[in-house]
Amino acid sequence: MQVEFQFNDERAICDIAGHETLLAVLRDKLGAMEVKYGCGEGACGSCVVLVDGNPLASCITLCASVDGSDIMSVKAPDPPGAWALLKDRFAAHEGAQCGFCTPGLLASCFALVQRGEKLTRQEIREALSGHLCRCTGYHHIVDAVEEAMAIWPTMS
């Protein structure tokens, strides 16, 4: 079957079979290697992308089901600068070490920041509890998100 969706502001038209996951299609057909396989259970968060603005685990999302959606990864064009802000703060606080969980994590952070959420450190921790990071101990990640949330309203 054919599916059509926006991926990072480009129209993607793919011939796919029903069983193909969004993760498989993004990686193997569209070459979006920033979307990672980490567990296949929707549990680790490394494969998270934004589907119509919502963070979804692409490894447990069938590609056929996102026909017509608007999908974004960390490489999405970014006129308002929310991605850039997050990337910058993550780099400045070393919110990534090995970096494998980072693109998925940033997708969830993007949704939080863009909603204009202003959360406490503990609320940030709860909001990101669907993402496992094994390197940073989360502290620097929370630093980065906290700062991005504080700066974003002045940018938008």
Binding site: R27, M33, K36, V74, K87, G95, C98, G99, F100, P103
Partner: peptide, 21 residues
């Protein structure tokens, strides 16, 4: 100092082992 590899990683620009084709 800000690590350059971290800048690349947060931008999703690093090709890890499974990303090679």
């Amino acid at each position: 100092v800000i690590r350059e590899d971290v800048r690349k990683k947060v931008a999703g620009e690093v090709l890890y082992s499974a990303d090679w084709v």
